[in-house]
Design a protein around this nucleic acid. Structure first.
Lengths: 211, 211
DNA sequence: AATTAAATAGTGGTTTACCGCTATTTTCTA
DNA sequence: TAGAAAATAGCGGTAAACCACTATTTAATT
């Protein structure tokens, strides 16, 4: 049983590259090649591949748009993003949409092959380069410490309860303090963190890991 | 110039393990060994190591507590967490506090050595096992898609503006619709997402990448 | 063409959050 | 041990959010 692979990319050079990579792999067959979003959506109605190699930007539609539609209607199709951009945010978005992998176009042949096979077997694949970036990204967020020391112990405590969707009155009852006190702490945090309302407080709390 | 290494861990077996690993590395000297938080804080006042191997749970104080205090007073000390737990959330927390690395106690000798040296040289180090988990964690968050389709286009639009700390009135003006309409969308989202207030909305938005 | 879902707008009301003050007690720290 | 920072509590008031309805107009889908 051969693996049916479809490619959606408007750069012939990429398509040819993939083709040559797969020259010696008889168990993978390229069944369809699309160079724009419209033809991809049309074609996939009639014939669903096992794995779809999807470019991030086709001339008429974006990767996220296409992935959303395809995964909704044909959830069994495994989408492997083939992109030239390594913006982590975009990577995260596509994976959250349900894509099974994300590789960069400048990956070497073996990596691409490995990715296709991993995804086909129900696995998930992320370019080694991106894995490295993910780790670095984790260290990079060190703005935390500044805001972390900005708030007092009690303020952090109250902030956590705010994130947990409690009202000021509930927080007051829980901590055995007056409603006024909670309000004071809350406003004090609004000033310290330079945000306008609850939304801002929750945002900072989640971003800096205070909650 | 020898690297001064301090170890804070209450398990003699761990300390001995480290000692034996470093037997053949004359450029690393173990200057201090502490088996509880108090003595660590005392000792570090008099003599600061280049790198501190810190256990996550000492008998009297927790890792986060100790790291916070130490990094505040002696920011030049590089803390390398040596933990037996691999809960990603804890890893993230420690790194956000400003620790320079996180390795598991069952790491092999070479990894531990590599970690100490990397950290000393101003680098950051994360156990390979944890790097792998970080990638898996990224894929795991697929709850997104469910909640993603739950909200309508307009609702998502409004949710983003809420996250950006806008009031209902501001949102209404921005979208050229009535204040009532915005309120309706907002309440509709509260029900759909099963949250109680703005805090809940923002939380879901950030968690699922809707904003 | 018919049905559904989404977006729109309203009434009327309650609850909660936000704001600027003052002021006391407690806790930390130099 | 004096001074600072934090936690506590209050007053009076405005703005915003939350809630339960009804109802019309636009898409979208079948």
């Amino acid at each position: 049983m051969s693996l049916k692979l479809a490619i959606a990319d408007d750069h012939p050079i990429v398509v040819n590259g993939i083709r040559s990579i797969l020259r010696d792999t008889p168990h993978i067959t390229i069944t369809d090649i699309y160079n724009n979003g419209q033809s991809l959506l049309q074609g996939i109605k009639e014939r669903q591949p096992d794995v779809l190699l999807l470019d991030m930007q086709l001339p008429d539609m974006s990767g996220p748009e296409l992935a959303t539609v395809i995964l909704k209607n044909y959830p069994q199709v495994k989408i492997l993003i083939l992109s030239s951009t390594d913006v982590l945010l975009m990577v995260k978005k596509m994976l959250k949409l349900g894509c099974m992998g994300y590789i960069l176009k400048d990956s070497d042949d073996l990596t691409i092959l490995k990715a296709i096979e991993t995804v086909q077997n129900g696995g998930q694949f992320l370019s080694p380069v991106l894995q490295q970036q993910l780790v670095e990204d984790m260290f990079r967020n060190k703005k935390t410490s500044r805001k972390n020391t900005l708030l007092t112990r009690r303020e952090k405590e109250i902030l956590q309860l705010i994130v947990q969707e409690h009202t000021n009155q509930e927080i007051a009852d829980k901590l055995f303090i007056s409603l006024h006190t909670v309000e004071n702490h809350r406003i004090s945090m609004l000033h310290k963190l330079e945000v306008k309302n609850t939304a801002g407080l929750v945002k900072v709390a989640l971003e800096t890991g205070l909650a």
